[in-house]
Simulated scan of single mutants.
Amino acid sequence: MLEVAGLRAGYGETEILRGIDLAIADSEIVALLGSNGAGKTTFNAVLSGLIRPSAGRIRFDGADIAGSDPATIVKAGLVQVPEGRHVFPNLSVKENLELGGYRRGRERRSHNIERVLTIFPRLRERMAQKAGTLSGGEQQMLAIGRGMMSEPKLLVLDEPSLGLSPMLVEEMFALIGKLNEEGLTILLVEQNVRQSLDIATRAFVMENGAIGLSGPADDLMRDPQLQRSYLGI
């Protein structure tokens, strides 16, 4: 589904990504882990076409998308749910969802809204409510639902647990696991290492713009280096 090889990118003369290699197979859930400043946000921006790479290859669903514009990438089916949710606060829940299908999936908008509301039934009760008045957890559900309106082949979730209570974090990871069980390919970009590894097939750990560790999620959970650096064991 996604193959990234030798990816380098940054801002001006400052290189942030230093040769990233990463691959995701169809129907997998892959975690990209790392602390603040590791380069995860820059990687997401390059993947979505917001930053042009200086070197390397990005192949998505068989096509080279490195350097493509964001609209083309979304139309191809690579959809990102950004960190911080970024819902349109003055628009209703329904309007936010409808905008999610602007570039892709427009002709199946009603069907896709019903699918989102089945997965996130709490949103059904709030369809006419302004998005800015929702709780943090509800806004995260709306952000993911809005992403699903584009019928993604690969959904990139950037820090979906950020700012949520422990109970809502548990609920959010359970919902992400359910989406993957239904066949959706997911790249989960997170600082929450333990719960990400609980639901991921494989994982990559980014440090200083490079991949420091990678492998099956179960193996990484037992890796002494990851335990010391991220789990405090």
Rank of each mutant, 00 (worst) to 15 (best):
L2W: 02
A5T: 15
G6R: 08
A9D: 01
Y11D: 00
Y11N: 08
I20V: 15
A25M: 11
A25C: 13
I29V: 11
A31R: 12
G37Q: 13
G37P: 05
G39V: 12
F43T: 07
L50C: 08
I51M: 10
R52K: 12
R52W: 02
S54H: 05
S54M: 03
F60E: 00
A66P: 00
G67C: 04
G67L: 08
D69V: 06
D69R: 14
A71R: 03
I73W: 02
A76D: 11
Q80I: 05
P82K: 00
E83D: 07
V87L: 13
F88H: 11
N90C: 05
L91P: 07
L91I: 09
S92T: 15
V93N: 01
N96I: 00
E98N: 10
G100Q: 05
Y102Q: 02
R104L: 05
G105V: 06
S110N: 01
S110P: 00
H111F: 05
H111Q: 14
N112W: 00
N112V: 02
E114V: 02
V116D: 00
L117I: 04
I119S: 07
P121R: 07
L123R: 11
R124G: 13
R126G: 08
M127T: 08
T133Y: 04
L134W: 08
G137S: 02
M149I: 01
E151N: 10
L155N: 04
L155W: 03
D158P: 07
L162R: 15
G163R: 08
E171D: 12
E171T: 14
M172A: 06
L175N: 06
L175C: 03
I176C: 02
E182A: 14
G183K: 06
L184H: 06
L184P: 03
T185W: 00
Q191R: 13
Q191Y: 05
Q195V: 09
Q195L: 13
L197H: 02
D198V: 13
I199W: 01
A200H: 10
A203K: 01
M206E: 11
A210L: 10
I211A: 07
G215T: 06
G215I: 13
P216L: 03
D219H: 12
M221E: 06
L226M: 14
Y230S: 04
G232A: 11
I233A: 12
